[in-house]
Design a protein around this nucleic acid. Structure first.
Lengths: 193, 193
DNA sequence: CTGTTACCGTAACAGTCGTTACCGAAAGGC
DNA sequence: GCCTTTCGGTAACGACTGTTACGGTAACAG
């Protein structure tokens, strides 16, 4: 045999380049050449690792989704139900600098999905999974509620966090980490307190 | 003199074409040729009316912002403070079909702003104006609250509505008009009830 | 009706995009 | 050591982008 390459490591490195480009320049700046330059290689390697641009974007998307899902899985089991819910919501918000970058990435993907229903479907699926997670946590905090009342609150909490993420993309001053924490705590108190 | 053209009417027609393209195909499909075809003219007219693509996008954006601002001004004065607040929040949400399209337009603009800080600044400014509007309405509902408590609730309500708009873009089934209304009413009850 | 002027469609430009073909070079088995 | 096989960089292609220059044409003043 001949030389071997760590394909998974390369795919991840290129995917991380995709995240950085998406967060920094949006879908408009997400060029194969830009990705290659950011990853420290050429378009040749990028298109040897992925069949085409769409496959690259989907892989980078799934990788990010998978990672955040794993980390939220861990948070879900820590402390009391109310504490776990708060921890997951804080994690999903864009409080830390890297989460703020992630919010920009998701926004870029969502905008790219405007033109392609297939990507929009993936986004919908991912958000339903997040909604189910929050609903599960709300059920642990308020086991006596019926599904209808619980889902309404879950949907509200998800929309609240997602809205702050979206708004922080354009105005990270108004939606500072401190403000986001305060809003989350206020919402938890209002809906579940 | 020679022939005359209704420049304002043309600019508005082209801007409407921009909205339709942005909502339908996102920033990636927003081509001068696509805009011209949608507006029923050629790129020649488009670039005779606007100096370049960016000016066209900014004009279409400002036109949409101006229109929604006017319509919310009217809603702000109808009925009791609580009713006015609910009416404005319902208007800002994507309950009607045309508002859902608008949410797609705003999302596309926000994604386009990822690469250009100038556009992001306009977005931040617009959202601060909306936040100030909601804060004004909350102050009318709860005059006894101090500014801190009031702003926290206003920020939460704005994020809630904006989040539902964003999420409805990818999943208009989970965030149906009925669900959005229910969530808004629940939030008003939780925060101000 | 005619001349003139503003209007706007046509066509070309340079640049960049995603994608492909090709080929030198690096690395493991013998 | 060599030889083979895979790797990955180079360069080109056609398509499409925003933008510009030009010319035909429609409409108003006289």
């Amino acid at each position: 045999m001949a030389r071997t390459a760590d394909k998974a490591e390369q795919a991840e490195r290129i995917s991380r380049a995709v995240w950085r480009i998406m967060a920094g320049s949006g879908p408009g700046g997400l060029t194969l050449r830009a990705v290659a330059a950011e990853a420290g290689c050429t378009t040749g390697l990028v298109l040897h690792r992925f069949p085409d641009k769409r496959a690259l974007l989907v892989h980078a998307r799934d990788l990010l989704h998978e990672r955040t899902g794993r980390e939220m899985d861990e948070l879900e089991g820590t402390g009391s139900p109310a504490q776990a819910l708060r921890a997951v919501l804080r994690y999903a918000a864009s409080i830390e600098a890297d989460k703020r970058q992630e919010a920009r990435v998701w926004l870029g993907y969502l905008a790219a999905a405007l033109g392609e229903p297939g990507l929009a479907g993936r986004h919908a699926q991912a958000n339903r999974a997040f909604l189910a997670r929050i609903d599960r946590l709300v059920a642990r905090v308020r086991p006596d509620w019926d599904a209808r009342a619980r889902t309404t609150v879950s949907t509200a909490l998800v929309a609240l966090v997602e809205g702050m993420n979206t708004l922080a993309v354009a105005d990270d001053e108004t939606y500072s980490p401190r403000t986001q924490k305060r809003v989350i705590d206020r919402a938890l108190r209002a809906f579940l307190g």
